[in-house]
């Protein structure tokens, strides 16, 4: 692969063997090979999603057949069913996701600052502590969490999800934002200090504008994790705070055919994340390659 990429090496080899045509052929076939591989992987990821969307438009009778039917009369009846019952779930999910993500960013930025640009004493330990909270399986914590939620009367309240989603995403966000902040040139911070910017001004006027693409990527990841979270929601909420993943589960009836209905619900549930991702796309690429931009 390196030999293919490196024009100097390519030229040298072609010159030695005096067979530029064969070299060119190998180049082209190599490139085609990579393209095929890339598409194969992409399709492997995309096919189940495509099948889900397709099935959502099928009548229940056509959904679960073997071999799969590709000719059917598309129907929106499954979606009608979904839209008739999703209201409260959607609201809860949006609130829990948006509020927890805002909280994560509000807490994550100062924390990351204190662990990168103005490192506190023993910042390494602090950083490790943050990530260590992710090492405990959430199953092990659910018992105590349930008791705490019960005692604080937060059971089946949207607040318990907001708090837990914030706590759940914060370590990752701190690590991400910290790595983006480390990319801010030290000279800039010194210039800001000489210009008389205090700490708040320095963060708001100098650092945040530079790391904002990174913040967008961080926010997107937090949104995805919070939106798709099921375990905590399932165990700590019933109706007053039930979220979209719970709606998906509730779409599964005790008896009868349900595949098409489930697919419609799953399609609907994934649309907001896709939209968020699409909006964040440009920033995401910039954010994830922040270090490459000088």
């Amino acid at each position: 692969m390196i030999a293919i990429r490196d024009p100097g090496l390519r030229a040298g080899r072609a010159g030695r063997t005096r067979e530029p045509t064969r070299q060119l052929l190998r180049d082209v076939s190599g490139r085609i090979g990579w393209a095929v591989l890339a598409w194969a992987v992409a399709l492997a990821f995309f096919l189940p999603v495509a099948w889900m969307v397709l099935t959502a438009f099928k009548p229940e009778s056509a959904a679960e057949t073997w071999p799969p039917q590709f000719t059917f009369s598309p129907t929106l009846s499954q979606f009608q069913l979904v839209f008739s019952g999703w209201g409260p779930y959607l609201t809860h999910s949006v609130i829990a996701t948006v509020v927890s993500t805002i909280l994560v960013l509000a807490l994550g930025v100062p924390a990351a600052y204190a662990l990168s640009l103005q490192p506190i004493k023993r910042w390494r330990d602090g950083l490790f502590f943050f990530i260590s909270t992710k090492m405990l399986p959430i199953v092990a914590a659910i018992g105590p969490l349930y008791v705490i939620a019960l005692k604080t009367h937060l059971l089946d309240s949207i607040w318990v999800l907001i708090i837990l989603y914030t706590a759940m995403n914060l370590p990752l966000a701190v690590w991400m934002i910290r790595s983006f902040m480390l990319e801010v040139p030290g000279e800039l911070l010194e210039a800001a200090r000489l210009d008389g910017a205090g700490r708040i001004r320095e963060i708001r006027e100098v650092i945040l504008p530079i790391v904002s693409p990174g913040l967008v990527s961080t926010a997107l990841i937090c949104v995805i994790f919070a939106w798709n979270e099921l375990f905590l929601a399932l165990n700590l909420t019933v109706t007053n705070a039930a979220t979209m993943p719970m709606f998906l589960i509730s779409s599964v009836p005790q008896e009868g055919l349900f595949i098409a209905h489930l697919c419609a619900a799953a399609t609907v549930a994934s649309v907001p994340v896709i939209i968020a991702g699409w909006i964040a796309q440009r920033s995401l690429v910039r954010g994830l390659s922040l270090g490459a931009i000088k």
Partner: peptide, 18 residues
């Protein structure tokens, strides 16, 4: 630094990019 009444020109200019 801000109270020293000085101004500095940095090697890489350190202009605020945004």
């Amino acid at each position: 630094p801000k109270d020293r009444d000085i101004a500095m020109v940095f090697q890489n200019y350190a202009l605020y990019p945004q």
